[in-house]
Amino acid sequence: MHNATSHPFCLRLAVTPGVSSSQLSALLALHRAEEPDVSVSFFEVTGEELQAGLREGRYDVGVSLQVSGDPALQTQPLWTEIMAAALPPRFRLLERGKLTLSDLQDYPVYRWQEEVCPLLDEELTALMPLDQQNVQRVTSFEMMALWVAAGYGIGIAAHSRIVRAHEWGLSMRPLADGPYEVVTYLQRPYVQAEATDRFERRALQVAKLG
């Protein structure tokens, strides 16, 4: 608790694109319920900005899909998302319960580049050379869903995102030759800070429940 003369503490949280919104929302709601006197300032940043800001003391904690190789930063894995295929309505592959990446070779495949999954992208590159332009990069999940729902190809994204987009007409099929995983990491300086320690414990609690 803060005394009458202290200033309320503000936790500076930096988040990179692609982090699962449902778990992050649950984490922020838990933080607000358990520690309402510690406010959160939210920053949307790139991976490079995140690591530089943590090193320079501009942020207290970061959440990202990329592992930090910076020895000055502590990295803690949180929750994991399984990648799946998003198919348009009345698509010929809907009759199959699961798909392999090889099943997708004859179709344009849309990938949101911020949803980082190195193993998946390596396999796609091996199956679909860049000069064939089968893999189309998009700037958001919503843009991927737009193209897929309109029947222009197949999307690959986190299972939970595709399920939530069912009302757009998308159907989800698991990828049989995985698992292809997207891992969310919490990153912070090694400097001990009680508010940051508590936030990390809540993040691990949300990860365990999810």
Rank of each mutant, 00 (worst) to 15 (best):
P77K: 12
T80F: 00
T80C: 09
T80V: 15
T80Q: 14
I82Q: 14
M83A: 07
A84W: 05
L87Y: 05
P88S: 05
P89Q: 03
P89T: 00
R90A: 07
F91M: 08
R92K: 15
L93F: 04
L94V: 06
L94Y: 04
L94T: 04
E95A: 09
G97N: 13
K98C: 05
K98F: 01
L99Q: 08
T100G: 11
L101V: 05
L101N: 12
L101P: 15
S102D: 14
D103C: 11
L104Y: 05
Q105L: 11
Q105C: 13
Q105V: 15
Y110R: 11
R111G: 00
W112H: 13
W112Y: 15
W112M: 11
E114H: 13
E114K: 12
E114P: 03
E115S: 10
V116M: 03
V116F: 08
C117I: 03
C117A: 11
L119Q: 15
L120G: 06
L120C: 02
D121G: 00
E122C: 05
E122P: 07
E123C: 10
L124A: 00
A126D: 07
A126K: 15
A126L: 14
L127M: 12
V135N: 04
V138L: 14
T139E: 09
T139H: 10
S140Y: 06
F141K: 05
F141I: 08
F141Y: 10
E142K: 14
M143T: 11
M144K: 04
M144A: 10
A145M: 10
A145D: 01
L146K: 11
W147A: 07
W147V: 05
A150H: 10
G151T: 04
Y152Q: 11
G153L: 09
G155V: 04
G155Y: 03
I156T: 06
I156H: 03
A157P: 02
A157L: 06
A157D: 08
A158S: 12
H159V: 00
